[in-house]
Amino acid sequence: MLELLLLQVLVSCLWLGHSEVVPSFKSPCSQVFYMDTPPSDSLNPTNAARICQFYDNKYRFTTLYDRNNRIPVYSAYIYKPGHGDRSDSWFVEPQLIKHNYRRDMDTEDSIIDTYGITSADIGKSQAIDKDYSDAQGLDRSHLCPSGHQSGDDKKATFTLTNIVPLYSTLNQGGWRNYEDKTVAQKTQGCDKTYVITGAVPGNTYISDGRVNVPSHIWSAACCVKGTTPIKAWGAIAENDKSSNYVRDLELWDLEQILSGLYGKPRITLFRNSCAKA
């Protein structure tokens, strides 16, 4: 009986140690969510993958990934901008290919060499580098931006499971201004800021229908002083090649808009709406 118990403990430890694609966000990467609580299940797609983004032996941020549309639903992270180098390569997620593959994000070439598979095998479950090579007028837009991270956390944002195709006019204009300037201003006085940035699936695709082009990109933040939430906000923009406008919103208004866009009941992004108890 004791041997069986020890075996069960060992199996559990191995599961936790090698789980990058996890059954739930309760562990091991729930700390990126305010009060360890992810958004409501209303955002979950049919074929979802929950990814604890793992790079260089450390969990970095979290992504809910839509395998069917091959874009993230959202990425959640803690805002901590600082110095660090960007990655020269794009990564993919080995455990989206096969669960017993290693958990560290890696380049396509490295995974192909290690497991003797092809780019087509990798692309069955996620976007690959080739999908974006002919995307005219569209940028690879980070949901967890490298500019909101520091050290090696910056490099970890260069996984294609953290990327959506965003029109250059928006990505390099209004949305960049929101990421670089607006967020920096709004986080003044915050000891910690929890951020969730997502994309609403659209009706068009790139790469012969493989990768969805979102209709909107959105972001929400919860600012905490000590252990007390002191403010929250949201932003949303239409992903249109002629649009460069980002709407600054109250958190509640953003949640209402998202409920309409996703066609789902009440969407909650932060526990207790990031409000004082």
Rank of each mutant, 00 (worst) to 15 (best):
N244Q: 05
D208L: 06
N244R: 03
G198A: 02
L251C: 14
I196M: 05
V224M: 06
N212A: 03
K181N: 15
I267A: 10
A199Q: 02
A237C: 01
K241E: 12
H216T: 05
W218Q: 00
A235I: 07
G263R: 07
I267R: 11
F270H: 07
W218M: 01
S242E: 10
K241T: 08
C222D: 06
R266P: 04
Y194L: 08
V200A: 00
Q185L: 11
T197I: 07
N272I: 10
A199N: 03
D248T: 08
I267W: 15
N212V: 04
S243M: 13
T204K: 09
K264L: 11
A232C: 04
A220F: 01
C222H: 02
K192Q: 14
R247K: 15
G260Q: 13
N244W: 01
V224G: 10
V183A: 07
R210L: 14
G202M: 00
G198P: 02
P265D: 12
I206Y: 08
K241W: 05
K181V: 11
S242M: 10
A199M: 03
A237R: 00
Q185M: 13
Q256S: 13
Y194D: 08
W252P: 04
V195I: 13
L254H: 11
R210D: 07
I230K: 15
T268F: 05
S215C: 12
P229K: 07
Y205L: 06
K241A: 07
W252T: 15
S242H: 14
D191A: 04
N212H: 00
A237S: 01
L269R: 13
N244V: 07
G263L: 09
Y262A: 12
D208A: 15
Y245P: 01
G202C: 01
P265N: 12
I217R: 00
T193W: 05
L249K: 15
L251E: 01
Y205V: 05
D240K: 13
E255P: 06
Y262V: 13
C190K: 08
A221Y: 11
N244F: 04
N212G: 02
I217H: 00
G198N: 02
Y245D: 09
K264C: 14
D253N: 14
C222N: 03
Y194H: 14
N239H: 11
P265C: 04
T187W: 06
V200E: 00
A220L: 02
F270K: 14
T187D: 12
Q188M: 09
N239W: 09
W233V: 01
W218R: 00
L269V: 11
Y262I: 14
G198K: 02
T228F: 10
V200F: 00
R266S: 11
S207M: 03
L269N: 12
T187L: 08
